[in-house]
């Protein structure tokens, strides 16, 4: 474990807590894409298949349980909770995420570390995580006023993978054999997708104006 990875995990945890806080306290999911939340639940479900078979550390297991539990409960809130579901703008959140899942699955069947079920699922979860934010970014472009919690949620979600890139660089130089192209390329693509969001988020923070993405 290095400081970059710990910072990344904590940032990721904070993004999930910010979202749960928003949904649980003000019972609203306005501006949040259910499609992205469903994709994240699928990412964690396919990435943590080995949660009960391969024990890495208490920290690792606890964090996996938190990410699994939070992502599925957020999907449940947005689909089932009578108050929360009312604030979900179904008309705007129309990204057909099936067109993200299928290419990632096909790519995982071709590009993986080993052609086994677990390895293909693991590669799939990495490719899917890289593009899972797209429905959310599209929704942000459509909804005019982005509330602070939603902006912070997306920012933290992007920042966590940026920290991970530093973690991979650090591990590459400190650990022999640490070469994992699938993880690195997926993580880089994922972070680049946030680039324009970061740009507008930073400007809105610098000029102290409401975050507003150009249509």
């Amino acid at each position: 474990m290095n400081i970059f990875r710990l910072a990344g995990d904590m940032t990721h945890l904070m993004s999930v807590l910010v979202l749960l806080l928003k949904i649980h306290t003000i019972k609203s999911c306005a501006g949040i894409s259910l499609k992205t939340q469903e994709l994240y639940a699928l990412v964690f479900a396919t990435r943590y298949l080995d949660i009960f078979t391969d024990f890495i550390s208490v920290y690792n297991t606890i964090m996996k349980l938190i990410f699994l539990g939070s992502s599925f409960s957020i999907v449940w809130y947005m689909r089932r909770h009578k108050l929360v579901r009312r604030s979900y703008d179904k008309e705007q959140d129309t990204f057909r995420h099936f067109f993200l899942v299928l290419p990632c699955l096909l790519l995982a069947l071709v590009m993986n570390e080993k052609f086994t079920f677990k390895e293909v699922m693991w590669a799939f979860s990495l490719y899917l995580e890289a593009v899972a934010i797209l429905p959310q970014l599209v929704l942000l472009q459509r909804t005019k006023n982005i509330d602070n919690l939603t902006g912070q949620y997306v920012f933290l979600l992007g920042a966590y993978r940026a920290f991970y890139i530093f973690n991979w660089i650090y591990r590459y130089f400190t650990e022999p054999h640490y070469v994992h192209w699938i993880t690195w390329i997926s993580g880089l693509v994922q972070t680049l997708l946030y680039a324009d969001f970061f740009y507008y988020y930073f400007n809105s923070w610098k000029n102290n104006v409401k975050l507003h993405l150009p249509a």
Binding site: I56, S57, F67, E113, H177, V179, H180
Partner: peptide, 10 residues
């Protein structure tokens, strides 16, 4: 053979 990739990251 490269040491098998233990998935120790989240």
């Amino acid at each position: 053979e490269e040491c098998f990739h233990v998935k120790d990251e989240l």
